[in-house]
């Protein structure tokens, strides 16, 4: 699988490239700004683009805007955004336009090499990965809604789901059995009044409702 990376900090770029290679990606292009990123995606049609939110020339949200363009024009390319800090509006912007092949992580997560490699693979496969901090920040904005009906445990499970964990991953994190996790998830889906479609899609919908973007 091919990947491109857009990151203006050289050190971090080298690090991410190494992790990408470790995760089995072939890095087709390394660029430092949004314009070059779009050109590289056009040229290489990678499976994933790893994009810094803040890039030259404006150092504001160039990466987010580029990500929206990429998901729109080249649906085959997933985007994983890296950010120094959490801005939940970016996540909301991204997720309200696209519900798959999107990731939003803090830069510091790159250091957890194996988890980061997992996230890269998941996003490239069309999954959604959100940083736990993004998730908790989105929660701050929620005031009253069906989510209040969830028990604290269910809420924890939902947060981990939003973070892109599988049932096994959630079970490991919470130190419970996988069947317990499945039970929690069923209960969550019921409480959120989600339509019965295929399981994966319901999971995504639950997460989106949780994040307040649908």
């Amino acid at each position: 699988m091919r990947a491109v990376i857009a990151e203006d900090s050289v050190l971090l770029r080298i690090g991410v490239v190494k992790v990408l290679e470790m995760a089995g990606f072939e890095v087709a292009a390394e660029v430092a700004d949004a314009e070059a990123l779009l050109a590289a995606v056009e040229e290489h049609r990678p499976a994933i683009a790893v994009v810094d939110v803040r890039m030259p020339p404006g150092f504001t949200d160039e990466g987010v805007r580029a990500a929206l363009v990429i998901r729109q024009q080249w649906p085959g390319t997933a985007v994983l955004l890296l950010s120094q800090y959490v801005e939940e509006r970016y996540a909301a912007d991204l997720l309200s336009a696209h519900t798959s092949g999107i990731g939003y992580l803090l830069k510091q997560r790159v250091a957890d090499v194996e988890e980061f490699a997992d996230s890269l693979r998941q996003v490239a496969k069309g999954g959604t990965v959100l940083d736990p901090q993004v998730v908790s920040q989105l929660l701050v904005r929620r005031h009253s809604d069906p989510l209040d009906r969830l028990t604290p445990r269910e809420r924890e499970v939902l947060e981990l789901m939003a973070g892109g964990r599988s049932n096994a991953g959630i079970a490991a994190q919470l130190v419970v059995s996988e069947s317990a996790v499945a039970k929690h998830i069923n209960s969550i889906l019921a409480k959120l009044d989600l339509p019965k479609t295929d399981a994966d899609h319901r999971r995504v919908l639950a997460v989106l409702r949780f994040l307040g973007v649908t």
Binding site: V16, K18, M22, A111, V113, E114
Partner: peptide, 19 residues
């Protein structure tokens, strides 16, 4: 621009070594 990036890079390299 300086120390933070360097630390991330260091942590990534150590993480890679570990992995």
């Amino acid at each position: 621009d300086g120390a933070q990036q360097r630390l991330v890079s260091l942590a990534v390299n150590l993480g890679l070594a570990k992995a």
